[in-house]
Structures are given as C-alpha cells and as structure tokens.
Write a protein that binds this DNA or RNA. Structure first.
Lengths: 238, 238
DNA sequence: ATTGCGATTTGATCCAGATCAAATCTCCGT
DNA sequence: ACGGAGATTTGATCTGGATCAAATCGCAAT
C-alpha cells in the first residue's frame, strides 16, 4: 500500500464503516449491525489520490476494499511493458479477489477516491458466515463477468471509432449527474488507450473525429459533452 | 433448445444426475443426496452434437446446465455479423447466467458433448437454499472472471502469433491426456479466429508459421502435438 | 509573465493483419 | 473410386491503426 499517497481518515473504531453502509457498499450493505461493528473495528477509511496503487500485480492479497467515492481501474501489465485495463470500478463496488493468495492484476485509483479497507482474513471469514454477503459478492462477480465479456467483444471486433464511442458511452452511463450528457473523463488519453487496446495517437484522432462529426464536444481535455446520446450510441454497432 | 440435434438420454428419474455427481459437476457436486434426488427428478441428460446451440443470445434463460463431457463456447454476435467467442467451458463447468432473465450471449457445443439440464426456477431456489451451491457457483464465476480478464489482455495487446500460441496453450492446459503434449483442437479455424479477434487466414498463417519454426506439429487439421511445451510458452510474452 | 515539462494533438510514413482471390485438402455420399 | 462442397491453406494487395516525429497545449513552479 502506497501510504505516501494516501490519507488514513479513521482507524479502529466502529465509525469507520458508516460511510460504506450509507453508500450501500457491496460488503457493508450485506452485514448485520453487529458484524458491521466488528468489521469497523478492524477496517480503515482511506483517501487515495489519482494514480495511487491500491493493489499491486503479483502481490499478496492481504486486504480488500469497498469503493466509497471515485473510480478504480484494474490493470494487467506484461513483462515488456504492454498493458491492458481489464475493468473499471465505481462506488459502491468491492475491490479484491477473494480466496486467491496472489493478485493477478493491479488496482489503481483513476481519480481521487475514497475506499474502505478490511483485512483479508476477517472478510473471508464473514463471507463464509454470512449468506447475504456471499450473495452480494456473487452478484457483483457475475456483473463484472458480464461487463468483461461485453468488453471482449469491443476489444476483439470493434473498430477504433467504435471503441472510443463505446468507452464514452460506458463512462456516461456511470456518470453521477442526472443529465449524464456532460461528464468528466476519469481517464487520461494513455489510460483510454490501455483500456481500448489502442495507442494514444489513435485515441486522440478518433476523439477529434467524433468532435468534427458533431457527436461530442470537448469542453476541455477532461470534460466532454454529448449533445445527442443517440447519435453516440449509433456509432457503436450492436 | 435445438431438439433435432440433441438426444435426450434420461428424463424424470433420480438417475439423471448421477453422471454429473460422479464427474463433480459444479452444481451436482454441491448438493446433498436429498437435493440431488429432487434435482434429478426435474433434470435431463442431453447428448448434443458439435454446433448445437444450447442457449441463444437474447433468449430467455429458462434453464441451466452442467457440462459432463465436451467443450462449450460462449459467443456474442453483433447485428452486422461480426462475432467474438467470450469464453470456453469444459466439464464439469456450470453453464448459464443465474438471476438474469435474458441471455446476453449464446452457448454452443464446440465438440460433441453431454450436458445435464435443470429448470431455472428449481436451480435458483436451490442456490438460495444451499450455501455450498452458492459458494461453488461463486467460485466458478470468479474463475471465469479471471480467465476473461486474462483473455482481455490477449485481445487488446498481443500480436497474432502470441494470440495463437496463447490459445494452443489454453487448450493444452485443459486437454485430458496425461501428457497434454498432443491434443485435439475443439475449434475450427473460423472459431479460433472468432476467439482471437482475427481472420481465418491470419490464424492459418500463424499456425503454419509455428509449424515451420518447429514449435508445433500439425498431425492433421484438428490434431496438434507440441514437442516442447516451453518453446510454445516462450511465444507468449508474459 | 516566463519557463519548463508532461500531456495532447497533428502530420508523415510504415506495417501487421485484413481483404480479395485462387488453389488444395477433407471427407461424405454415391 | 468419383464428385462435390465446405474447410483450409496460400498468394497478392490493401488499409486501419501503429510508429516516428514535431508542434501545441496546460499548468505548476519561479
């Protein structure tokens, strides 16, 4: 854990998990008041800056988290440096791979974020004890699997323009604004490229192409508006 | 269900699921004797030919299965015909997407196969009733998620030669022979292309390239031997 | 305001893999 | 054995996206 780039807000009190529960964190939302209090005593709330590595690829899975604010990217890197983002997670998702010792991917805050961290052993014990927690984590795993497979279609069979449009559509769907026609990109151009299996140059060219076609407006480098969401959707062949 | 291309072996007796249990089917392996008997009374064993569609994309999820023999491919197709295989499943995997009404992908037998089919409602009730079944399906979902993410790296960032080598490596790992240095391809060239996000021509060229390099021998169109598994692994940049 | 540096865009060229086209190979039915 | 049709391989060419190169932008530190 990169302590230098994170700030621990609360340690070792049952207060720690109130925030998760209030936000229906996948873990905390499934626990009884008593369990929540026990979890709270052993958990901590962390504020992490964009870019902070929460889990390192190849490291031991010694803790898990709930995301309470912000966006987390899941990334796999090859020994020669090529890398691929294999998932984006948003509040109130659970982050971690239960029941496996070593992580096969890294998890990194894509934006400034807040997470609620619990020790591995305690969480795994609670999963075994608590039907509702297992059910809730099972449901998240199935949703992530659906998302991963949808993304496999994008990676394998869509063109660069369709890929970029798919990403914008995905981000818009998770944007917190009611209109969701204007949103901040949680990813840099390089991260977008790593998500789409493209280069930054191609991402940039496709964004300017969508802009010239009038499908999006690039208010500034991190902020996009979509005048007509259907026009964007039409760019993604179903 | 494409009944024309399948053969129902046993219907409506508690015998039906013995085969799943003996093979440690993900579902049947998690049930008590009493539950197994109830499941057996409502399940049926089917023999399906290669190419038989088990679940159609967009259809209602009205039943689930255990694979007891053979290989099943999970496939997504776009309206313009482009398609992507998003998963391969082997015995004793469970096939289906619990808790979702409509299937977002199709499942098709890649080889001749046998599956044990249960009705949706019964299985979902048993999941809610039975810790061990939920645990077991949760574990499979997590494993499929790991596999899907590994494959996203392959789709997004590996070259055609690395992709083909990755596929051969994957198949070899699931081959049932003890040596696993010689195996049958469960997929045609077209299916391999759809799994790797390539065209059949590129798949064919990469296979002959690997053959000319001495990494594989193509005994016949569906049968490969790998003289030195490490040489194959070296073709896949980690 | 000015400098400096990383992020982004834009331009020029290249190339891995797609596309188009044609042989071969397999295997099934007669 | 003989057709014949689909599957596979091989060849020729094209092209979308990569790579190499150079502005330009954004913004934090001075």
């Amino acid at each position: 854990m990169d302590v230098a780039r994170s700030e621990v807000l609360v340690i070792g009190t049952s207060v720690a998990c109130r925030s998760c529960q209030a936000r229906h964190g996948v873990v905390c939302g499934a626990l009884s008041a008593g369990q929540l209090s026990e979890l709270g005593r052993h958990s901590l709330r962390r504020k992490v800056d964009a870019g902070c590595e929460i889990i390192a690829q190849g490291s031991e899975n010694s803790f898990y988290s709930n995301i309470t604010r912000g966006v987390v990217k899941l990334c796999k890197v090859m020994s020669d440096g090529r890398q691929q983002i294999v998932g984006l997670q948003f509040a109130p998702d659970f982050v971690g791979r239960p029941f496996v010792r070593e992580s096969t991917l890294s998890a990194e805050a894509a934006t400034d974020a807040e997470i609620c961290v619990f020790p591995r052993n305690l969480l795994e014990r609670m999963i075994l004890e608590t039907r509702e927690l297992q059910r809730s984590l099972h449901a998240q795993a199935l949703n992530e699997l659906d998302a991963a497979r949808e993304w496999m279609l994008t990676l394998g069979r869509r063109t660069a323009e369709e890929k970029v449009a798919s990403l914008l559509h995905l981000i818009a769907a998770h944007a917190e604004t009611a209109t969701s026609t204007a949103f901040d990109l949680p990813l840099s151009r390089a991260e977008i490229a790593d998500f789409l299996g493209l280069t930054i140059e191609t991402v940039s060219r496709q964004l300017t192409r969508l802009r010239k076609e009038g499908v999006i407006r690039i208010e500034n480098i991190r902020h996009i508006t979509v005048p007509d969401m259907d026009a964007l959707a039409k760019k993604i062949s179903g």
